[in-house]
Design a protein around this nucleic acid. Sequence first.
DNA 1: GCCTCCAGAATTGTGCACAATCTGCGCGGT
DNA 2: ACCGCGCAGATTGTGCACAATTCTGGAGGC
Lengths: 251, 251
Amino acid sequence: MTTAAPAKPARRTPLARTGAARSSAESRIVRSIGEAIADRRLPPGTKLTEESLAEAFGVSRERVRKVLLLLAQRRVVTLIPNRGAFVAKPSPKEAREVFEARRVIERAIMERLERLPRPLSDDMLEKLRGHGALEDAAERAADRKAMIRLSGQFHLLLAEFAGNATLAGILTDLIDRSSLAIAAFERRSSHTCSADDHRRLIAALIGNRPGEATALMIEHLDDVERQLDLEAKTDTRIDLKAIFADEPEPT
Amino acid sequence: MTTAAPAKPARRTPLARTGAARSSAESRIVRSIGEAIADRRLPPGTKLTEESLAEAFGVSRERVRKVLLLLAQRRVVTLIPNRGAFVAKPSPKEAREVFEARRVIERAIMERLERLPRPLSDDMLEKLRGHGALEDAAERAADRKAMIRLSGQFHLLLAEFAGNATLAGILTDLIDRSSLAIAAFERRSSHTCSADDHRRLIAALIGNRPGEATALMIEHLDDVERQLDLEAKTDTRIDLKAIFADEPEPT
DNA sequence: GCCTCCAGAATTGTGCACAATCTGCGCGGT
DNA sequence: ACCGCGCAGATTGTGCACAATTCTGGAGGC
């Protein structure tokens, strides 16, 4: 930021550890960028220059390139050939699809959780309550970043309880993309934060009135989606293109 | 195959086109390997040496490396650091999870299809019937490879009709992983091929008796899973470990 | 004043050389 | 005879240099 010295290639730690240590460093970077996108330090459309990221994380450009490829596969960043990587900017259609996919998967998860033998295991109860406390704390502190992260983790926690790591993995991606959709389409106004919904969900799960937790989850997801402004005004550029699409050419 | 001349690095086409043409070449390779895995020309556990693949496809090793990274992300190949890439060998647990995930997603897809206004669009009817004919033909010709490919495409076709590209994309991965699971766990015996199930599904969809198509789909997926031998004898190594786990040490 | 075009800068893409690691095998010691 | 040790050979991992492309700013013409 201060000096514009491009000659220093940001040498990484002297002992360049290789092997397993590297892979964890990569997933660390993936997670780090993922979180930054989720809590909007990196808004949709942001250009992600390889060199800058390499410098920021103290790794080589190739490593960053690999990470970007992974993130692109998860639809969190968009890779445009010869143009670079950008934080993905979902279309309203895609946003709706993501929420629909979440409803499909999370309904199934809730149905499985409701089918679990009662009472729920102590481990589960403890984790649920612990997480609830964390969300409450974040809400009281008005720590928006923490709230966003915890909200995602809550849904993931439920997925893990359902005991299907494959579904949980799919949901992980969908949650990241939800964050992106929220960042792109959130209305200026309102946003009754979802900690309250989560509280009710936890209570319903523990209480086990058949169908209640599932219904609450669907309603919760609907609520979040409804708080978005998904009218189809994606981009000025695209609008112009559409408007002048069938203008006759003035030779 | 005939000569073992390793000195020739399999030069790619003289004019190394760059840009958009490259990305399509990559997805071509991904698809090609994916299909080879699906129809068992590449059984689970097969070592995928970068150099061999590069030679086979006439591209550089780096390109192959990128493709393998993508396939690994989709859990179709397993990447072991410093050891290389292998065709993934799902555990019985993972196989079950994949089929459960498919039931979750494909049930939702069928419910949406059943909710479609009737009669179905000509386009849909034509594609359904056309696909049915293809499957019949493959069955009559006993073309196992074609049957496997068409079977996957059938499920994907339904997903596309449901109009949610995100769900369809998720299902694409799950179908590939199903193929892997089938390759890994199929019983020697039987295998009443699923073309018949698909025929009935098409009929139920067109007929539109509420819930029938959805029920058939669930049953179909259950059938396919039941035809697998998912008893937990994943690996000899692990069996030994389990068997001798609580043997007293003979010092 | 505005548009077009072009050179230089910045950024991404790719081949290559070499380093790091794993595997298989032979050799010597006990 | 058996076990560890270590040395090739093969394979993967990574930094780097350079090629290709896009972007930017400004000069020149209309």
